[in-house]
Amino acid sequence: MKKTVLYILFSTVMFSLMEIVLKSTGDAFNPIQINWIRFTIGGIVLLPFAISSLRIQGIMLRWSDLKLFATTGFMCLLVSMTLFQLAIMYDQASTVAVVFSSNPVFALIFSYIILHERLGRANLIAVILSIIGLLVIVNPTHLNNALGLVLSISSALTFGLYSIISRYGSIKRGFNGIVMTCFTFLVGAIELYVIMLITHISAVADKMKQVSWLRQFSNIPVLTNVNGHFFWTLFFIGVCVTGGGFAFYFLAMERSNVSTASLVFFIKPGLAPILAALLIGDKIAMTTIIGIVIIIAGSVVTFMGNQRRESGGSMQES
C-alpha cells in the first residue's frame, strides 16, 4: 500500500507541475514542437513497460492495431494536446490546469453517448458540479480571456473523447492502459512529425503565413533550442512528467484499482493552482478558488461512487 501511495503522490505532483513547466519555457519552443518532443520522450520511457506488459498478457501487436493507435494518437497529440499547448500560451497555467482536470467529466458524457454506458447517480452529480465549477471559473459575465478558456475547455473535451476511443480500443483488443498510452504517444509523435515536415514545404509555408493565426504553424521547428541550456527542462517534461507521470499512474492502477489511481486527477485541481502561485506567481481569483472547490467536490462524488460500485462488484463476484 505504501508503494501505491508513493506512485499516486509522484504522478499527482508531476501532472500538477505540467502546465507550470510548459509555461516557463516561454517562447523558446513552438507549441507543436514541444508536444512532439515530450510525447516522443514519454513514449520511449513507457516502451519497456508496454513491451513487458504485452509479454505477460501474451498479446502480439498486429498491423491492424496501427489504425487504432493512429486514431488515438491523432485525437490525443494532434488535437487535444495542441489545444492544450495553445491554451497555456494564452492563459494562466493555474486556470488551464483546473479546466483540463475536468476531462473525466467529458469522458463520462462521451461514454454515455458512444459506449452507451449508464450514468450512475454519483457520476451525474459529478458532471453537474463540474459544469457549475467551470462556469464559476469561466465567469461568462466577465470574460477577460475568452480565447484561453475556449482552448482549455476544447482541450479537456477532446481529451475526454480520446479517453473513450482509447477505452473502446483497449476493450476490443485487450490492451491495458500503459500499452494503449505508450503506442498512442509513439504513433501520434510520428503523425505530428509528418505534419511538422509538411509545414516546411515552401508552398504550404507561404500559404500559412498569409493567415494571421496560422503563421506560428509555418515552418514548425524540430530541434531548435534542443540544447544544453534547456536540457533539464526537456528532461523534466519528457521523462518525469509525460513518461514518469503516466508510468507511475498505471503502476498505481495495477496495484490498487481505477478509482484509487484516479485520485491523481482529483487532487490536481487543488494542487496545481497553489504550485502555480508559488512558483510562477499566478494570481488566483476568488471565483477560481470557488470553482476549484466545486470541481473537487464533484471529483470526490465520482471517487466515492466508483469505490461503491467496485466494492459492490467484488461482493457479487465473491
Score class of each variant (00 low, 15 high):
264 V>T: 13
78 L>N: 12
213 W>Y: 15
177 G>A: 07
206 D>S: 13
190 I>E: 01
68 L>E: 07
205 A>T: 02
276 A>M: 05
234 L>K: 10
50 A>C: 11
310 E>L: 13
200 H>Y: 09
126 A>E: 03
184 T>W: 02
117 E>Y: 04
287 T>H: 15
58 G>M: 10
49 F>T: 11
190 I>Y: 03
225 N>P: 01
179 V>S: 02
113 I>H: 02
300 V>S: 04
192 L>P: 03
240 C>P: 01
112 Y>H: 04
89 M>A: 08
98 V>F: 04
230 F>R: 03
230 F>I: 08
102 S>P: 02
9 L>R: 10
204 V>N: 01
144 N>Y: 09
63 W>V: 13
3 K>D: 09
117 E>I: 01
255 R>G: 03
38 R>N: 09
68 L>Y: 14
301 V>I: 13
15 F>P: 03
160 G>K: 02
70 A>Q: 06
269 P>L: 08
104 P>I: 05
63 W>G: 14
297 A>K: 04
257 N>F: 08
308 R>P: 00
60 M>N: 13
74 F>V: 05
146 A>V: 15
240 C>M: 15
111 S>E: 04
53 S>I: 11
206 D>A: 12
302 T>D: 11
213 W>G: 00
125 I>N: 01
298 G>E: 04
194 V>M: 09
99 V>A: 13
17 L>F: 13
109 I>Q: 04
80 S>I: 09
132 I>A: 13
210 Q>Y: 02
263 L>K: 01
217 F>T: 01
307 Q>G: 00
122 A>N: 10
293 V>Q: 06
260 T>M: 09
145 N>W: 08
52 S>G: 15
110 F>L: 07
79 V>A: 08
47 L>Q: 06
266 F>W: 10
176 N>R: 08
65 D>Y: 07
127 V>E: 03
4 T>S: 14
17 L>T: 14
311 S>G: 00
70 A>N: 03
311 S>M: 14
53 S>E: 13
36 W>L: 14
228 G>T: 05
50 A>I: 08
210 Q>V: 10
69 F>R: 02
197 L>W: 02
86 L>Q: 12
38 R>W: 07
303 F>H: 09
84 F>N: 07
296 I>L: 12
210 Q>P: 01
91 D>G: 11
295 I>F: 04
242 T>I: 10
236 F>T: 14
128 I>K: 06
71 T>M: 10
144 N>G: 14
318 S>C: 02
